[in-house]
């Protein structure tokens, strides 16, 4: 689905992503883990078009998408969420969702004045869809709440909901579980699995919660120092010497061995 080849992204002398190559299989829920500073979020940003790569190539289903802008990628079905949830704070939850599908006829000035009927029909359909999404996420009671007033976890759900407003093909989730309580985390986890199975979304998620990763993801890709270190099932990863070393550092491992 997504293929990353020898990707570099440098910030001055700092090589945040330093020759990463990986592949995200269609229909998978791929986990992306690694210690802080491993380059996971930078990798996301480059794939999602927020940052241009220094060098390297990204393809989506065989088509090169390197350096495309976020709104172009959106129309190809590539979506992402943010580590710290983003929302249009002055709009209601439903309005937030209804913002999503691009290319609505109301977006041209001409239609604003002369295509009222068409816009009204479209709005009605969007509204129905937004309500359906909210129901799916079991948060329909928040429908008319201003998005700025939501809790951190609810905002994450809203982010997920946003990806459901269009037929996404692949969704990048950046620490969707961070700072979210257990109950809400389970709701999010369930939603991800259902979206994957029922609608065939491919997911790639950065996550620190190993239990959450273990429940959802296969395969899991481990990054360290801007490169891919290992790839496999969660059990394989947990047993991987190199991964333990990268996480704990050499000193700690030796210390552990001595004990």
């Amino acid at each position: 689905m997504i293929k990353v080849e020898n990707l570099h992204r440098h910030f001055g002398g700092f090589h945040a992503v330093d020759g990463a190559s990986l592949e995200i299989r269609e229909g998978s829920i791929t986990g992306l883990v690694g210690p802080n500073g491993a380059g996971k979020t930078t990798l996301f940003n480059v794939i999602a078009g927020v940052l241009p790569p220094t060098s390297g190539q990204v393809t989506m289903a065989g088509e090169e998408i390197t350096g495309m802008s976020p709104h172009e990628l959106f129309h190809k079905g590539l979506l992402r969420t943010f580590q710290i949830a983003h929302e249009f704070s002055s709009m209601t939850v439903r309005e937030n969702l209804m913002m999503v599908p691009g290319g609505q006829s109301g977006e041209t000035l001409w239609n604003t004045w002369f295509g009222r009927k068409r816009i009204a029909d479209e709005e009605r359909a969007l509204q129905a869809k937004a309500d359906e999404v909210l129901e799916f996420l079991t948060v329909d009671h928040l429908r008319d709440e201003k998005a700025g007033n939501l809790s951190g976890g609810q905002k994450k759900l809203l982010e997920l909901g946003r990806t459901m407003m269009v037929d996404a093909r692949i969704v990048f989730l950046d620490e969707v579980g961070a700072g979210v309580n257990r109950t809400l985390l389970n709701t999010i986890g369930d939603a991800i699995v259902r979206l994957n199975q029922e609608r065939g979304y491919t997911f790639c998620m950065i996550e620190h919660d190993m239990e959450f990763i273990g429940r959802l993801c296969d395969p899991v890709i481990v990054m360290a120092e801007g490169r891919v270190l290992a790839e496999g099932t969660i059990d394989e990863i947990k047993a991987n010497e190199q991964v333990i070393e990268a996480y704990l550092g050499t000193g700690l491992k030796n210390k552990g061995a001595a004990e």
Binding site: V50, S69, F82, F88, M91, M99, V100, Q104, L109, T112
Partner: peptide, 25 residues
Amino acid sequence: RTRTGKSMRAFSDNEDLALLSGINP
């Protein structure tokens, strides 16, 4: 009340998100 107007508000509110919501800057 209009989609274009809302796109503008969305863009003003959160540019990154607006871009990732497919709004053409």
